[in-house]
Design a protein around this nucleic acid. Structure first.
Lengths: 149, 149
DNA sequence: TGTAACCTTAAAGGCGACTACAAGGTCAAG
DNA sequence: CTTGACCTTGTAGTCGCCTTTAAGGTTACA
């Protein structure tokens, strides 16, 4: 089963240009070519691209994905699957805690915005209280410490 | 009370280059200059920059911030503060629902990753189950819809 | 045989929000 | 009067992940 770049792309749901891009940054090996120079991909290649797409959907960057692929390519050669597995786990745990941080931050932002809305609907000031809140500054900084040089 | 660009920057906690950048994209008006060409800022300007920074911390993009500033500049001229306030509220609500979407998405990603970890710690396969899971494909797509253009 | 729909490469563009650099002018202190 | 820390402009570079364009070669089909 062999594919041109266009078919691969369609199967995985990305553009041929993306596939060439993955190749250019080393995520995909240079495939064999037809006599006229067309890239020829195997099912293995298709799966590799699918792997990239899946991992990307899970929030991994291409360089993190590159690390996964590097690890699993290592596995092919010498068998250190124990080591491999723990490296992968470590990476996944790291990503999970990154996600937790992001989630928390976004929840805080949401809370702040909701508080501002609340203020706004319950007020009758002439100026918009949201804009006022946004403008509010740590005005102190202007004259407190920071006598500055 | 007047400031050079460097003092403004220090007070707000950003770089002079950022301030020039804000000016270049129209978020800040061109300030008056000293006889030698130095930018000279007022307290109003300082507050405007502070506004930008605060809004940014709350997750607004510079173009959204530009819209806020446009609205509040309008308020200065003719008084349509009612209209203004509801426009601002609308924007804030939009941002809140964007945040909710993002949060949900990240929580789903987190769940998927946790499920993968779970599988990994409870398995004794030779190949890493996480990598296997990532490689798994919606193989069906290979032949379904997407006649495309 | 014509032509549409592929494929090739290299290079440039785009987003967002800057940062860095070069080459020079100005200002305050010692 | 000299230093060093500011300021000016313009241009280019950064990051991640592509997309677009240009200029051409190949293949499948009617």
């Amino acid at each position: 089963m062999e594919f041109t770049i266009g078919k691969m792309a369609k199967y995985v749901g990305i553009s041929p240009a993306s596939i060439r891009y993955y190749e250019s940054i080393g995520l995909l090996p240079s495939p064999i070519r037809t006599s006229s120079g067309y890239r020829k991909y195997s099912l293995r290649d298709l799966e590799r691209v699918r792997f990239i797409k899946n991992a990307q959907r899970l929030g991994f960057s291409l360089s993190e994905i590159g690390y996964f692929l590097y690890l699993s390519d290592l596995e092919q050669k010498r068998d250190n699957s124990e080591n491999l597995c723990s490296s992968v786990q470590k990476e996944v745990r790291k990503k999970i805690s990154e996600l937790e941080e992001k989630i928390e931050r976004l929840q805080e932002l949401k809370k702040s915005l909701e508080a501002m809305l609340e203020k706004c609907t319950s007020s009758t000031t002439s100026t918009c209280p949201i804009l006022a809140a946004l403008g509010e500054g740590s005005r102190a900084e202007t004259e407190t410490k920071e006598a500055k040089k």
